[in-house]
């Protein structure tokens, strides 16, 4: 397990959570630090999304503690430091009339603003965030009319416009094409490396996560594995996913590249 000297951005301390009689997480302890690009992986129902919801205060643990920037999440109020991008489902926001600029400008929320109804949505910071995700040409289009992949990019811009210290992404590349995926991870690499942003990604894309993440946490109700991607062994991954797994790793002096092939 990697231990960094920097303070924890998110700390789960012996956290357990159940949905009724069904245990989702048991005794999980994990810490994410500044500058870390952490992947949370595991099979369906392994507790990945629950772990994230606990970190964001959307669920309260049955036992244990969750801290954000050193404060118990129950008392946390500096939400401007957190950017969150939920997974986009097919048909989401089908009726929502907002344009791309309007949706991204929602990310600038910083408390109740009595004149917010009159605020322009096409501000410089909003336009810059839209440009970062390559959606400038679509800024006046309705979100509902975009593809799932494009909606994902808009939601990323909405999270980025907050200029957060912590970015939490749920399946960010689902529905995104190959060039969009490369662009997405290039942005995330820069934010993590240059700005020291802590980034947590929940994903089923094992290949991309092993290639892009600096640390990997594998869940299956409990924290099964936690370390750097090249620490993971074929046996460990096979046990986690309950199926034979081959891991193909290319490690160079400059960057780590991993690819994982799963055989049924």
């Amino acid at each position: 397990m990697t231990e960094a000297a920097s303070p924890g951005v998110i700390e789960w301390e012996r956290v357990s959570f159940s949905y009724g009689a069904v245990a989702a997480l048991q005794d999980v302890s994990l810490c994410i630090h500044y500058g870390e690009l952490a992947a949370v992986m595991g099979p369906n129902g392994s507790g990945k999304s629950t772990l994230i919801k606990l970190a964001l205060g959307l669920l309260q643990p049955d036992s244990g503690r969750v801290r954000l920037f050193g404060r118990d999440v129950k008392d946390f109020d500096q939400w401007g430091r957190v950017g969150y991008m939920p997974q986009v489902g097919t048909g989401a926001w089908r009726d929502f009339p907002a344009t791309v600029s309007e949706v991204v400008s929602l990310g600038t929320y910083n408390g109740v603003s009595p004149l917010g109804i009159f605020r322009r949505s096409e501000r410089a910071d909003v336009l810059a965030a839209i440009e970062t995700v390559g959606m400038t040409a679509y800024r006046s289009r309705r979100l509902a009319g975009l593809s799932v992949g494009q909606q994902q990019r808009v939601l990323l811009a909405r999270a980025l416009v907050r200029n957060p210290d912590l970015l939490v992404l749920d399946e960010p590349a689902a529905g995104v094409d190959v060039s969009g995926e490369e662009q997405l991870y290039a942005v995330l690499r820069d934010l993590s490396r240059d700005r020291g942003m802590a980034i947590v990604i929940v994903s089923h894309d094992i290949g991309a996560m092993l290639r892009e993440a600096t640390t990997v946490a594998c869940l299956n109700c409990r924290l099964v594995l936690h370390g750097q991607p090249h620490d993971l062994t074929v046996e460990e991954m096979s046990t986690l996913y309950g199926a034979p797994v081959d891991v193909l790793i290319h490690d160079t002096a400059h960057e780590f590249e991993g690819a994982l092939h799963r055989h049924r």
Binding site: G57, L58, W79, P86, L106, V112, S113, G116, I117
Partner: peptide, 22 residues
């Protein structure tokens, strides 16, 4: 609605996102 328009818009867009936005 005038005072809380942005808050209500956040909730209409996505309740969880609104909560995580504060």
């Amino acid at each position: 609605v005038g005072v809380f328009f942005v808050d209500l818009a956040q909730m209409a867009f996505d309740d969880n996102l609104a909560r995580v936005s504060g």
